[in-house]
Design a protein around this nucleic acid. Structure first.
Lengths: 225, 225
DNA sequence: TTTTTGAACGAACATTTGTTCATTTCAATG
DNA sequence: CATTGAAATGAACAAATGTTCGTTCAAAAA
């Protein structure tokens, strides 16, 4: 326990409501073993209550999953850069734009909860219609459209060659999704934070290669990896 | 029913054993709703038998999943190009190599069963240790190592710039995995065959962009998309 | 035809599941 | 202190689950 936690326990005790305990226990268990493989009784046990109490706070088991997805959706929406910042960051040139942009984005989603819920979302997208719809819309389609705009703008500003911006958006975002996927299946036992650190390196490699393919200058730069 | 099927039914009637019926029903149901959400009774129903009969052919429910994975592993292993062909195909130049290589590979895995089992593998990699190990080893690590060798060879032959072959393998294969992932979550209701057709286009776009970044010639080719 | 053998059957079993509800607990309010 | 209302309890329930097993069936072997 670090100093801050100790202090807050002594003087400023943080009350975790029963509802939050249920929520947190569910995130832990669902993300590890999947929604349908976790009995309500086990959620209660992990939350330190009895199974009946859960129904004082959530209509049923499904409502817990719904709440988790809603929470994630909200948090994810707040992690995006506002448009003005996007435009001003672009003036620094494409390399800086992507490097800094990824840094800022990752810094905002860097909590252990996020790593767990990512895994949960990917898992349940296969079995739950609502989760799949969320994934399709909020994680794939909207970001893809956003990145398409970014690349279109870069082309207009002659920062990169005129290549179909849809293709570029796909190239960029599919790699992000792959990294999330890779984490969620193979590296979820690792700290989300330490995975993100390695992820940002991989992302930079990828972006550098992508820019190398679409850069306008004639001289070939030496790739540094 | 096409001519071939009709003919074989008339003269050369194909007997589907009960074990195969159970296997096929399980592939259908597991891939759609996930292993733990499919009751043994429903497998039996879909196979046209009673639940007790299943245990004449499989030790238990888990053994059915094991059998499916073993089957998939075997089939997937046979889909790879032998080394000699790889080397000879490489003489045609990188563009042809990737285009033809992808064509050949996809032609070999182009069965409806394959599409279903891909989805099943991705789903169960989250919940089943054996499936995850298969995925990690046979779907990620081994192909990555193989592609690293390919790129290393290309660099030695001065077909492409000297960029870390590991990075290039990762760039190439992660896109393949992304396509499989995309299919398994969002497009699994579509024909696997028709998805593969679109997939090969996307793959070619990706490869072309990747080669653009590592090609040796000074003149910049015009990307056709 | 009789015997044998393995598959199919389906009732039965013990567990486990999500959910309900009458009762108890307990802290805030009067 | 007494009252109140919300939260917690845990026994109980029906439904569903994976698996077992004595019996029936049918086709091959004798």
């Amino acid at each position: 326990m670090n100093q801050e936690d100790a202090a807050s326990n002594l003087h400023d005790e943080i009350k975790i409501s029963t509802k939050e305990k249920i929520f947190n226990a569910s995130v832990d268990l669902f993300s590890l073993r999947g929604f349908s493989d976790v009995p309500v009784r086990e959620i209660a046990k992990q939350a330190g209550i009895r199974e009946g109490s859960i129904y004082n706070h959530y209509k049923n088991k499904d409502a817990i999953l719904d709440a988790i997805i809603d929470y994630f959706k909200k948090e994810l929406g707040q992690a995006n850069l506002p448009d003005e910042e996007t435009v001003s960051l672009m003036k620094e040139g494409p390399e800086v734009f992507f490097t800094r942009g990824a840094q800022i984005f990752l810094a905002r989603i860097n909590t252990p909860q996020f790593g767990k819920i990512w895994r949960l979302v990917l898992m349940e997208s296969y079995r739950n219609d609502k989760v799949r719809e969320f994934f399709k819309k909020d994680v794939l389609e909207e970001p893809l459209a956003g990145w398409e705009e970014v690349f279109k703008l870069m082309i207009e500003k002659k920062m990169i060659k005129s290549v179909n911006p849809r293709t570029l958006a796909y190239e960029y975002w599919s790699f992000v999704i792959f990294l999330i996927f890779d984490y969620s299946i193979l590296n979820y036992e690792e700290d989300f934070e330490s995975y993100l650190e390695r992820g940002i390196d991989k992302m930079n490699h990828h972006t550098q290669l992508l820019l190398e393919a679409v850069k306008i200058k004639d001289k070939q730069s030496t790739l540094k990896f």
